[in-house]
């Protein structure tokens, strides 16, 4: 029982990661791929934050009367990772816009076909 209590968080997170990962590799539509990437990454972020959680702890901002703080290091890492993630998303989406303009479609199999014609 303690086994489940100890790990339930990680297991659901694994499920979320895999859902995102599945969208990335199975989707044909590029926008959906990017959404999948974001879900994948966001889920990884949750994993990190879970690492840093301390039961009974509090947000790592100094306050009177609070002795137990959660671990601030994963927070810092994920702050960075979030920004990195959105940067990648922005570039990816910009590429999609250009692909749409160049190919007239954002479905992966369709622009493959169009290049085959050249």
């Amino acid at each position: 029982m303690s086994f489940i209590v100890d790990y339930y968080n990680y297991w659901i997170v694994v499920f979320l990661m895999m859902a995102g990962f599945y969208i990335v590799i199975s989707a044909n539509n590029l926008v959906k791929k990017v959404v999948g990437l974001n879900i994948f990454q966001t889920s990884v972020f949750i994993m990190y934050i879970s690492i840093g959680k301390v039961s009974g702890g509090s947000a790592p901002i100094l306050a009177d009367g609070i002795t137990s703080y959660s671990n601030p290091l994963p927070h810092v890492l994920i702050l960075t990772a979030i920004v990195v993630g959105v940067a990648t998303t922005a570039v990816g989406l910009a590429l999609i816009v250009r692909i749409k303009r160049a190919y007239g479609t954002v479905e992966e199999n369709e622009f493959k076909d169009k290049d085959a014609l050249i």
Binding site: L30, V31, V34, V35, N38, T42, F45, I49, G52, K53, V54, G57, S58, A59, P60, I61, Y69, S70, P74, H75, I78, L79, I82, V83, G85, V86, T89, A90, L93, I96, V97, K100, R101, V106
Partner: peptide
């Protein structure tokens, strides 16, 4: 307890990423 992260995720992930995605959809 990751308040800073939540702050960023709300602004960046939910806000900016969504707006950009919508902008892309408007075109695609």
């Amino acid at each position: 307890d990751a308040v800073d992260v939540a702050f960023t995720e709300a602004a960046v992930g939910a806000g900016i990423a969504t707006v950009l995605m919508l902008g892309t959809l408007a075109l695609t």
